[in-house]
Simulated assay, not measured.
Amino acid sequence: MIDTDLLHTLQGALHGTLAERLGIELVETVPGRVVARMPVAGNTQPFGLLHGGASAALAETAGSMAATIHAGPDRVPLGTELNATHHRSATAGWVTATATALHEGRRTASYEIVIVDDDGRRVCTARLTCMLLEARTG
């Protein structure tokens, strides 16, 4: 079941960030899984194809939000590794990223992120690893 309060809280955390500038929207936020989407328009390279860096930013955003849920209020995730394989181009519509937990531990969390186009074709596969740090107070 989707926790709409959590979804709105995490979407609000994207205000003023690169994710907001790219038009990234959170669709689903549950423990172990986050779904986010991004328009292709405005996120292309000069040849009209979805920019690989935009795909990487979408993947990192989805994975980081999943790590944020896992970390809880007393810890914060810090991305330490992101890799992405681009399988096909996208030129219009939206791309949707689904981050699924591979490992959610006490100190690290890793996610596989699959990005698909509007027709469900895989555009990119990424993996994100985050270190979980104690939140700073004061």
Rank of each mutant, 00 (worst) to 15 (best):
T4E: 04
R106C: 03
L26N: 07
T129V: 10
A56S: 15
A19W: 00
E20V: 08
A97T: 08
R75A: 12
R33I: 01
T44M: 11
H103Y: 05
Y111V: 06
L49S: 13
G79F: 00
R88E: 05
L132W: 01
G12K: 02
L6V: 08
D5P: 03
T61L: 13
G12Q: 03
D117F: 11
V34M: 01
T17G: 13
S110M: 02
D3W: 02
P39K: 06
S64V: 12
I24R: 07
E81A: 15
P46F: 02
T29M: 03
H15S: 15
V30M: 02
A13R: 11
H15I: 14
V40W: 09
N43H: 09
G42L: 06
R122F: 02
L78T: 13
R106K: 09
W94L: 15
L10M: 10
T129K: 02
H51G: 05
A126I: 06
V123G: 09
L18Y: 00
R33D: 00
R33A: 00
V35W: 06
V40Y: 05
R107I: 01
E81I: 07
Q45I: 09
A19Y: 00
A109I: 02
G120S: 08
S55G: 13
G93P: 03
E104N: 00
S89D: 10
T44R: 10
G32F: 01
R33V: 01
L22M: 12
R122C: 10
T91H: 15
W94T: 10
G16R: 12
V34H: 01
G23S: 11
H51Q: 07
G16A: 11
V95R: 05
R127K: 11
D117T: 10
G93F: 02
R136Y: 08
E28F: 10
R136P: 07
L6F: 05
L14W: 00
A71F: 06
S64K: 12
A57F: 08
W94E: 15
T100K: 05
A13M: 11
T29S: 08
L26I: 03
F47T: 15
D74P: 06
